[in-house]
Design a protein around this nucleic acid. Structure first.
Lengths: 118, 118
DNA sequence: GCTATCCTAAACCATATGGTTGAACAAGAG
DNA sequence: CTCTTGTTCAACCATATGGTTTAGGATAGC
């Protein structure tokens, strides 16, 4: 996990940094949706929502299936998993650091207890 | 996990969407660093790097401790954990969907086997 | 064929972002 | 006190972003 594809992560995290797009992903977690269905909940032009879908798509977070005149979108979990892996990798460091801190505190605590009972 | 603090997640994911900032976080995973130490690896003015640190800070990802004239930064894992929780929450949906799909395929497979051996 | 529907494309706008430089400021070092 | 170091601030610039409106391209329905 040494930042293999920065551009990809850039795009994924950027796509996630907008609450409209996160809401769309949330909707897609329930299943495939057309672009207009995805756009419906927002007080925004369809063209505007379509741009958001495009951002999600070009980040690799959703895939598009065109059936006639309607475009159906569905989640592509792989890229989200990549992002999560990134976070989890570093979380390992933090928790390790926290564990170390905890161990130090415990050791110190025990040293003090020994002092109390000579 | 129903998008409680969109602004916060906006800021966190936006902060993560830049490879310079991710590299800084990676550096901070190893321990506290001064701003100039964080800036050193990049071919960028100190002021530019300082802005990145500020973005990380205002997203709540790092905390700053000022000692004399040097500013020391360290990770604050809480917000990163929030972001990871967001991803993991939705990952649950995807994996559940994948599990469902797998179960359906398996059932279908078994039905076909039964057909082979009447 | 005609019309309504789904969606994208293009042009445009305001604002945000990532970068620069130069100045300012506080605090160690001599 | 002076000089250097660590850092931010302010002004500026180019480009990206999120939104709009209008127009256009397929396709479904009548």
């Amino acid at each position: 996990m040494v930042e293999q594809e920065p551009a990809t992560l850039d795009a994924v995290f950027h796509a996630l940094s907008d609450s409209t797009r996160r809401a769309m992903l949330r909707e897609l977690a329930g299943g495939e949706q057309s672009v207009s269905a995805l756009a419906a909940p927002f007080s925004m032009s369809l063209a505007g929502a379509s741009k958001h879908v495009k951002v999600l798509e070009s980040a690799g977070l959703v895939r598009r299936r065109i059936a006639g005149r309607t475009h159906y979108c569905r989640l592509d979990a792989a890229r989200l998993a990549e992002a999560e892996a990134w976070l989890r990798y570093y979380e390992r460091f933090w928790t390790r650091r926290l564990d170390t801190l905890e161990a130090l505190l415990k050791a110190e605590d025990e040293r003090q207890r020994e002092g109390e009972n000579p």
